[in-house]
Computed example of a mutant assay.
Amino acid sequence: MIKTEFLIFEVLTILLFIACVWHASRQGRFRVWELFFSVVYGVLLEWMTLQQLAAYEYGQFVIMFDGAPLCIGLGWAVIIYSGMEFVKNLEMPTYARPFLVGFLALNLDLAMDAIAIRLGFWNWVIPIDSQWFGVPWGNFWAWYIVVVSFSGLIYLFRAWGWRIDKNGFKRWGYVPLSLIGSVIMVGVTNFVYSTVFIRTELMGAFSMVVLFWLGIVMVFSARPTIIPAKRLDWVVFVVPLVFHLYFNIIGFVKGYYAQLPILAVIGLLMLASGLVVHSYPAYLKRGSVR
């Protein structure tokens, strides 16, 4: 029998995806194409990981493809989409944008994953009190690589003009090529992680620090400037808000926060920081009007 919490999460991801499709449709068919292929990528990525590795397994959701839940693919899609849309509020070089999108995704996962495993969404093979509250360090490594590589290749092909090229293969093919390229990058980097950094927990944590430090350097070296937004983009704002609220509510209702108060601190801190970051461009515009 499907748990109520699982069903609610599936419904939420479907609703968020519908909202993102509407949002993308206002920008043209190729933005919708990118969004839909993000779902394909998300489900394919999860399925491949389940087939090749034995690091985790999913609980029972309503819609699953050979063990990979559709809602997880939808989650990947809307998180990447909202991150890329938010980054439009910054004036910065193209090369640095995917690294910032990756950090926006991590803002969610640092709080979400520890609650999700306690709820039974998925189960890692490590003890519940190991590494990041039961979540392997390699999970965050993979999250960052997935988001940075996929969004980065999309940005790259756009910069090359493939999105508007008269050649049909380029116009429609740049997104599948981004998927293939990202899968290769994830596979290579995961191999490096599993052969070099996974030997001890300390090395796993160190690899995260190095990876994130490189990302921070890339973002800040670009010297991004915030462009004041005319108004708050509610679809882009609501995507991270819904994820944060859902897992924070679960944390309180299920007693996970009472059992481990540090999880509450992390969850609420990620929620607050996410709200501030996503609302700041609109706040700047209001301030300039005054």
Rank of each mutant, 00 (worst) to 15 (best):
S38I: 04
Y56R: 09
V236W: 02
G181R: 07
Y155V: 07
W122Y: 10
C71E: 03
F36D: 01
A205P: 02
V192E: 01
W143T: 12
S194T: 11
F252K: 05
I226L: 13
I115R: 04
L156K: 10
L177D: 05
I72E: 00
K254R: 13
L44Y: 11
W22H: 08
V196A: 01
F103K: 03
G274L: 03
W162I: 12
T13F: 07
A282H: 09
L263R: 07
V21G: 03
G102V: 06
M48R: 03
L211T: 15
L284H: 03
L263K: 09
I145P: 02
V238I: 11
L260F: 11
A159E: 11
A68F: 13
V219E: 06
R286C: 00
S149Q: 03
V289F: 05
P136V: 09
W122L: 04
E10C: 04
V239L: 00
E10V: 06
E10F: 06
T195P: 00
I8F: 14
L74H: 02
G73E: 05
V276L: 08
W162N: 06
R97I: 10
V265K: 03
Y246K: 01
L104N: 05
I216H: 02
L70C: 11
A229V: 13
F212A: 01
I227P: 07
V253A: 09
T4E: 11
G138Y: 10
L284I: 06
F36Y: 09
F9A: 12
L53S: 11
S25N: 12
I8M: 10
L12S: 05
L35H: 12
L269D: 08
L12V: 10
S288I: 13
F6H: 14
T225M: 07
A205L: 15
I117E: 06
G120H: 10
W132P: 02
S221R: 15
V11C: 06
G75F: 07
V43F: 06
I226Y: 07
G287P: 00
A159V: 01
L110W: 14
I198W: 03
A222W: 13
G28R: 02
V235L: 05
F133G: 00
L179Q: 07
V186E: 01
Y280P: 02
G215N: 11
L7K: 09
S151A: 13
G251K: 06
F103E: 07
A116W: 09
E10H: 06
P127G: 04
M48E: 05
V147K: 00
S221W: 12
P93A: 10
Q259F: 08
R163V: 15
V146K: 02
H244W: 06
L153V: 04
S25R: 15
V217H: 10
W33G: 02
I180E: 00
I128P: 00
P281E: 13
V32Q: 11
A24W: 12
E91I: 02
Y256I: 15
N107S: 11
G138E: 08
G75A: 13
K3A: 13
K166V: 08
A19E: 04
S288Y: 06
T189V: 02
P261C: 09
W143V: 12
F9N: 12
I250M: 15
F252S: 04
N89K: 07
G181A: 07
V135K: 03
Y283P: 00
S288V: 09
G161T: 14
I198H: 04
V188L: 14
G102F: 08
M203Q: 08
L104A: 03
K88W: 10
I262V: 15
